[in-house]
Design a protein around this nucleic acid. Structure first.
Lengths: 336, 336
DNA sequence: CTGAAAGCGCTTACAG
DNA sequence: CTGAAAGCGCTTACAG
């Protein structure tokens, strides 16, 4: 079909050219230390000169390693509107490719242990996997049993010893609360995300810790639940306003809810940030387009992906890896 | 390393179990019509029963087809803030996997014909490629020479016969202009994107066509150039306002600029949409969070990905494929 | 329609 | 440190 005329260059060709055996070529290309320096050099040069590219399929068949890493993203609607995934994936892709590994993009429903994704991952087609925000842990447990190395982007629900990377959700909530206290705000509320999931819970916990640092405790009335949507932020803000007369600051667990909160505040005749200061989380595009521009907790999303890839690569080499928490930073704009 | 105890099931196993040869098993699995129905059925059942999964590496080595499709995304900053790419990629991934093809995610710089991406694509590691918004056409031309099938998401600059899929940029501009005229607006301006690139040019052309349909021509003063950024929209709006006293409607080539335009309009004491109506393009998250909520031209982004994948699959089968333009739709909110 | 056999291009004990 | 050789699990002319 494809008129790829060029006859493929193989080990035989470069072995002949370099005056060594195919085994030696293989050793050099696989970084086997047991090769004479001169011969190694000759092989490397020949490979370079002839523009040789190893055939992955052959390599995979012989070695049992495919060199492929699955990036598994749950196929619900969240991916459709959140640039987060693309950004993390780009970080992963870059690191993986630099290490001669191939990132396979799996967007599919992960609702069952026997679904297509599960099948796929067990089929030996990949050497490892990186999961995005994992909800279904039975799948994971199964993979662990099989011995497939994996890393999770986000903090897993169960406090097992899965390897993961996440941003400092707790620290983000804490920084927001501190900023409010330090700038003299008195009645500080929060709009949570889904607090059954770890990220939402930790952001709330960090916020609460900020209260504690100042010798106070947030009353229940100061905590309104949202679901990360614009409308939920608006509605939660209305409740907060109604329940707390002196309300002068609100930390929302994401930017979308924060923008909803600003709208609700202004509808109630309040001026942001004069009457009420607001901080969001994500430092997304909507934080920049918001009026007033939204102060927000920023995480290094590309780094999240790069770190995930590096953790997995370490694990593939049987190195002892530790989960990592990436720092966050408060980006000050005009809303707080 | 991985304690994958299960001995692999191979063709031999299922050939023995089904009482046929390995060749027959292969034929059945590759949909070769030349197999007796009874034997085919027996093989299919055995495969099912034994939970057999074909070894891709072996298959690739023997057939010369890898079953992998590269999704190539240029590694500039745009991917970092635009959910567009993730959404298209998810559409691609879904269709590809359903067809037993594997989506390989390549995020890298594509600036040269000899860059890593070029090398990679020529190395025979993939059966085809899908490009996102292609700038560098010399690479493409090279791929065509090699015979690697590919599809472009977005309209290529050069009006060659590359296979592509794009949304109806022209129609979007046209719909916006029509909407303004039909709702009685008189002095209608536009903020363009990068008009060197096709998308920006076509959106402008469509807008101009709307003027022509109403027997008019937009004066140069009614066209302000932007670069798709928030600030450029704000600045362009100021120019538009200064140059056109009666300005009462503006079509911006993306939502970000439209939001900037709203801000500039309000800063100038105008009320949106009463004094000035504004329409954006993309129907992104910022259109929803905007105040007032932004009317915007919406494209079906998932479909864009699915269509790209289907075009490529057709091409892989040597079918005659045609580039496709997907319809767009004006989503009415409050800004127009 | 079917099967025996060669071959795809690597990797890896094994023996030296 | 090195090479000859077997083998990874498929596919595909070839002969029937």
């Amino acid at each position: 079909m494809a008129p790829s005329k060029k006859p493929r260059i193989t080990y035989s060709d470069i072995a002949k050219e370099a005056g060594v055996s195919k085994a030696t070529v293989s050793r050099v290309l696989n970084d086997d230390p047991n090769v004479d320096d001169d011969r190694r050099k000759r092989v490397v040069e020949t490979v370079e000169k002839m523009g040789y590219k190893r055939n992955r399929a052959a390599s995979a068949l012989a070695s049992g390693k495919t060199g492929m890493i699955a990036i598994v993203i749950d196929d619900d609607l969240s991916i459709l509107s959140d640039p987060f995934y693309a950004t993390v994936a780009s970080g992963i892709s870059r690191v993986l490719m630099r290490n001669d590994l191939q990132p396979l993009l799996l967007v599919a429903e992960m609702n069952s242990v026997d679904g297509p994704v599960a099948h796929y991952l067990q089929g030996g087609e990949v050497d490892g996997a990186i999961f995005f925000q994992l909800h279904e842990s039975s799948l994971i447990r199964k993979l662990e049993k099989i011995g497939l190395p994996f890393v999770i982007v986000g903090t897993p629900h169960t406090n097992s010893d899965f390897l993961y990377v996440d941003c400092d959700n707790f620290g983000g909530g804490l920084q927001a609360a501190r900023h409010f206290f330090e700038s003299g705000r008195k009645v500080i509320g929060t709009i949570t995300g889904d607090i059954v999931a770890t990220a939402g819970k930790q952001r709330l916990d960090g916020f609460m810790q900020g209260y504690r640092e100042h010798g106070k405790v947030a009353s229940k009335k100061l905590v309104a639940q949202g679901d990360y949507s614009l409308d939920s932020g608006r509605i939660a803000m209305r409740h907060l306003l109604a329940d707390n007369p002196g309300l002068d600051a609100v930390f929302a667990a994401n930017d979308l809810m924060a923008v909803g909160a600003i709208a609700a505040a202004e509808e109630a005749g309040k001026v942001v940030p004069d009457d009420i200061a607001i901080i969001g989380f994500d430092d997304s595009l909507v934080a920049q387009t918001s009026r007033p521009p939204l102060s927000s907790i920023k995480q290094d999303v590309v780094n999240l992906g790069e770190t995930a890839a590096n953790l997995l690569i370490g694990k593939l080499k049987d190195e002892q890896m530790e989960s990592v928490i990436l720092p966050v930073e408060l980006i000050s704009r005009q809303s707080a």
